[in-house]
Structure formats: C-alpha cells, structure tokens
C-alpha cells in the first residue's frame, strides 16, 4: 500500500492539500499521514530562564498544535469526506518545516509529499523562499504542490 505525507498548518492552502490527498487516497487506497511542523531552530538564541522552562513550553506548543490545528482538521475531514475508510495518522514535530518534511519523507518511507502552495507565513516565505519551493528542490520523493 502506498502512503502519502501531507504537510499541514492553519492555512486554507493546507486544507486544499489534504482534500487533494484524501480524494486520491480513497480511490487508490493510500495511507495518509498529516504532519504539522512547529517552526524551531536548534541554533536560535535564548536566555537561561527560557531554557529552564523550554521542556514545559515544548509540551504546551505540541498540545496547542493538537487542539488548534490537528483536531479541527480531523473534524473538517470527517465533514468533507464522510464515511471514508482511509487510514489517517497525525504527527506534530519541531523543526524547519521544509527540512523536517523532507527527512520524514525519506525515513517514512513515503511515496509522495503533498503541500499547499501558500501557507501561514507570507513574510518569511517572501524573504527566505517558501516551504513548497524548497521541498521541490530538496525532497527525496515526488512533491505535489496544491494551488
């Protein structure tokens, strides 16, 4: 059975990507993994006080992503694609979205990566290039960019 990895965030673009993946997963009986990557860098600067509570805040960030992004998305899937028998898994990670998705695709192993064309961070994308742009260049598997 083939499996497909979908990068998700709060944006409408990522919902369209999920819809795209689910529609094809139903026909081809793929497994679908929804992954949200919380932006984080191992080389950022922080104060000792922040470091002391980092572990706590990390847990809080993951819980927040679960309740604000993943859970609403799962409910939305149930309403958009009712009565499906697709195997949907979810995961929340910390890292740079493009690198993390590419790494996961390699380790998975996944056969396909699906992302929305526009995500949450317009400013960052304008300056540093967007996640889909980077994925297309670096991902080890085929990438579908959903408009």
């Amino acid at each position: 059975m083939e499996s497909v990895l979908v990068g998700v965030d709060r944006s409408d673009g990522s919902r369209r990507a999920v819809k795209f993946a689910l529609d094809r997963a139903r026909v081809n009986s793929w497994r679908v993994a929804l992954v949200h990557v919380i932006h984080w860098s191992p080389y950022s600067f922080s104060t000792p006080q922040e470091n002391e509570t980092r572990h706590v805040r990390r847990q809080a960030e993951i819980e927040q992503a679960q309740t604000e992004i993943i859970n609403p998305l799962l409910r939305w899937i149930d309403s958009e694609v009712p009565d499906h028998d697709i195997e949907v898994t979810t995961e929340i990670r910390h890292g740079r979205p493009s690198e993390m998705l590419a790494d996961l695709a390699e380790e998975g192993p996944y056969d396909l990566l699906v992302v929305g064309r526009t995500g949450e961070s317009h400013l960052r994308a304008a300056i540093f290039g967007s996640t889909p742009y980077r994925l297309v260049q670096h991902a080890p598997v085929a990438v579908v960019v959903v408009p």
């Binding site: 191992p42 080389y43 950022s44 922080s46 104060t47 470091n51 980092r54 960030e61 990670r93 890292g95």
Partner: peptide, 25 residues
C-alpha cells in the same frame, strides 16, 4: 553542532542554545 543529539529531541534545549545562553552572562 548536534552530531550526537537525538533526532527525537527537536524542540528541546540544544547544546548550542545552552552554550549561547551561558555566554550571554
């Protein structure tokens, strides 16, 4: 540089961050 850091520890305090926080003092 994180060569011996666990992959699953992303999001936690890295060696680099502990070093720079200490250096700030």
């Amino acid at each position: 540089r994180g060569r011996y850091s666990h992959k699953a520890d992303e999001g936690e305090v890295t060696h680099f961050q502990a070093l720079t926080a200490a250096l700030s003092g």
